[in-house]
Simulated assay, not measured.
Amino acid sequence: MSIAPDIEVSEISGITFLDIENRFASARISLFGGHILSYIPKSDNQERLWLSPYASLNGGKPIRGGVPVCWPWFSDDHGREKGELPSHGILRAQVWQLQSSESSEKGTHIKLVPSYTRADGFEYDCEVSLDILVGETLQIRLTTKNSGIVPFTFNTALHTYFQVDNIQKTELTGIEGNYKDKTDNWAIKASPTPYTIVSETDRIHLTPVPRTQILQQQTPFTAIESEGHDSLVVWNPWQGAASISDMDAFGYKHMICIETAVTQGAVVEPGEQHCLQQTIVPV
């Protein structure tokens, strides 16, 4: 397979990286986890993704930051005791394969597939692919196709960490409706107005709005467009970051997770497929 001319392949500490450089943007993707680590549009040269300085980049455990792929369950919602199966599923800690790549007038197209999809906790026949377009926007599409003879239900998320200058000077717009508050025993609450982050935040918003924005005082804005989701998850560990081994104690000041997610269960019939898409738009 030939590799698109916009892509440089390297291997560091046992992980294969794809570095993309085209006229629209630069980006870095790790084949471990099928994990996007960086996206810098050339319109403003501002990094849009946050990567922990203590992220494990040796294939030993999932990478903290960027765009982790959660599949086929979200968090520990796998029907077993917590810790019995890996949090956020089986894809973010395995090596993916580069199936195809192409340069076009819209940017650089990459298609990745995981090494396997059947595992303890999910024993169905299916095909999963991650299609990435690095261009004026970063478009990420996760497709799950049922290649078996029985329907299955799954959850999934594009668990994106966005970089911000100062979380206390950051506002989210476009999010509405009620959310489930994990920090308050899953209480149902209304979305705040204005939407700012002032403490530990772990919320599953049940209204699948198609577009939200991250507003900052000093740097360009970022819009997030979502499709195929039933939820938006907003997460910031606040001072709890100090207890996360692969995160700086003050890293919470410079990141916000806004996750395009399916948390209420998507059913895929035999021969059908589900597509979850998130597009990161420099504004």
Rank of each mutant, 00 (worst) to 15 (best):
M1W: 11
D6E: 00
I7F: 01
E8M: 04
V9E: 06
D19Q: 12
G33K: 08
H35N: 04
Y39C: 15
E47F: 07
R64Q: 05
F74L: 04
L85Y: 05
P86F: 09
R92T: 06
W96R: 01
W96V: 01
Q97V: 11
Q97P: 06
Q97D: 08
S104E: 08
G107N: 08
I110Y: 15
P114R: 06
Y116G: 13
G121V: 02
D125M: 05
I132F: 15
I140N: 11
I140S: 12
L142E: 01
L142W: 02
T143H: 05
T144E: 03
N146S: 03
G148L: 15
V150A: 10
V150Y: 13
P151C: 12
F152P: 09
F154Q: 05
F154T: 11
T156Q: 04
T160A: 14
T160P: 02
F162V: 01
G177F: 14
K182T: 04
K182Q: 04
N185T: 09
N185Q: 07
S191H: 11
V198T: 02
T201R: 08
D202C: 06
L206G: 09
V209E: 01
I214S: 05
Q217T: 02
Q217C: 07
P220V: 07
F221K: 04
A223H: 12
H229R: 10
D230P: 15
D230R: 02
L232G: 09
L232V: 15
G240P: 05
S245Y: 02
M247C: 03
M255A: 14
I258R: 09
V267E: 08
L276G: 14
T279W: 07
V281W: 14
